[in-house]
Simulated scan of single mutants.
Amino acid sequence: MQVKLKLTVAAAMAVGAGLAVAQDVQVIKIGHVAPISGAQAHYGKDNENGVRMAIEDLNAQNVVIAGKKIKFEIQAEDDAADPKQGTAAAQKLCDAKVAGVVGHLNSGTTIPASKVYNDCGIPHITGAATNPNLTKPGYKTTYRIIANDNALGAGLAYYAADALKLKKVAIIDDRTAYGQGVADVFKKTAASKGIQIVDEQFTTDKATDFMAILTAIKAKAPDGIFYGGMDPQAGPMLRQMEQLGLSNVKFFGGDGICTSEIAKLAGGAKTLENVVCAEGGASLQKMPGGAAWKARYDAKYPGQFQVYSPYTYDATFVLVDAMKRANSWDPKVYIPKLAETNFKGVTANIAFEPNGELKNPAMTLYVYKDGKKSPLN
């Protein structure tokens, strides 16, 4: 009887210890927002994959914060590249009290969402939205780990003027915060370099027929066309340029068109060979951990890589790094540590300016050779 009693007590103690261990696991949710539906879903899925991969890697590290073993989870939301859905998704993450957010993809969704995050006191880091206006309000909750449009638009304009010696360019933008912003920087910089802006046309981020605006541009005989927008429009635009005999006209764009997907969307058009696009950040080959990271990504998510997943991966780690240094996942406690970030990421050594912009951002120009995206610098 005594032996049985001892065994029962021991068993009860073991169960109690097990419960204590279980209770010591703290779940921390990190939000992610991007378009997972609609024409830009390929970007959004790539971004989300980057966060999922980071969370898997962090959970494998058995992170301990404030004496508790941490289990990270993603709360993924779809904003369909729509500003209203973007703010609704941001509010949903605020209500869920996530510890931090990686997102959004588009400047047009990130800028209005940034106010929602500021008002509820949750930090967000974008690895994709590039409009400089994002950091202008000076929110302590807003961070960007990629070069902004001032670098991208200007870099392309310098290349057009200095390397290609272009004299006349036309500009098209899709009227979104991103497309308009990057086109505006290109236009101002190109004009300052003596390039004549012969035409300006506008479209939307839903359009697929550009024959009318391209016909109007053709009459002005430009050496190049700059398009401020994303690849679901740039691909068909390249096909239609070929149909109109604009086969020798250079085609410029920011990171929104700088994808592997554009080669498919251009449907074999020879004009793809005239594309020069810019991405904020080093090429994968020149990123500190780019090549090894990309091999792991491709094994996990074959054929899904686009542009920004290395940045969303790093953004997730940067949030957690600040939590670790603050010994807290409470945004009020760890936000000040975000401002002091000095993190060796896959994409770069990440540190922030006082306004939340990345310090010393790199920029890379790309062209397409045999349908494959290749870095120029």
Rank of each mutant, 00 (worst) to 15 (best):
A216L: 12
Y178S: 04
T135D: 07
I195V: 15
A216I: 10
Q201E: 15
D174Q: 08
Y158T: 13
D174I: 05
G194D: 12
T126Q: 11
T135P: 04
E200W: 02
A191G: 09
T176G: 05
Y143L: 05
A128T: 08
F210E: 06
G138V: 01
A147L: 11
A129P: 06
Y159I: 06
Y139W: 04
S192Y: 02
V185P: 04
K188I: 05
T215H: 06
A151Q: 13
A157D: 04
D205C: 02
K165C: 07
A128Y: 07
G181N: 04
M211P: 02
N150E: 14
L152P: 06
G194Y: 03
I146F: 00
L164M: 11
K218R: 06
G127W: 01
K218P: 03
A163I: 04
G181M: 01
A221R: 03
G153K: 13
G179K: 00
D205A: 14
I213G: 04
K140R: 09
Y143I: 07
N131W: 08
P137Y: 06
D199Q: 15
R175T: 14
K220T: 15
A177K: 01
S192C: 07
V185N: 00
R175P: 03
A129G: 09
N131K: 10
I146V: 03
R175Y: 06
A129D: 07
T215C: 03
T208E: 07
Y158V: 12
T126M: 10
G181C: 04
A157F: 00
G155P: 08
L166N: 12
A160S: 11
K188M: 02
A190Y: 05
A177F: 03
A157Y: 05
A160D: 11
L156P: 09
A219Q: 15
Y159K: 07
I171M: 13
Q201S: 13
I171T: 12
F210Q: 03
A207S: 15
A219H: 06
G179Q: 00
A221K: 15
L164W: 09
V198D: 06
L166E: 15
I145K: 11
F210N: 01
V198F: 06
G181A: 06
I146G: 00
N150G: 15
D184C: 05
N148W: 10
I145T: 14
P137V: 05
K167R: 10
L166Q: 14
M211F: 09
G127P: 00
Q180K: 13
F202E: 14
T208S: 15
K193I: 02
A219I: 09
T203H: 12
A207V: 07
D173P: 11
P222D: 01
A191M: 13
A191E: 15
T203Y: 12
T126S: 15
A154Q: 13
T141E: 14
A216P: 05
T130V: 03
K165G: 09
D162C: 10
K188Q: 13
D184G: 15
G181V: 02
A161W: 02
A154C: 08
N131Y: 07
A212S: 14
R175H: 11
K140L: 10
K193M: 01
F186V: 09
A221M: 03
G194P: 03
A170Y: 05
Q201I: 09
T141P: 14
N150T: 15
G153I: 11
K187W: 06
T141K: 12
T203V: 11
I195A: 09
A128M: 08
D205S: 12
F186T: 08
L156I: 14
K140S: 12
T189W: 09
L214Q: 07
Y158L: 11
T204R: 10
K168P: 04
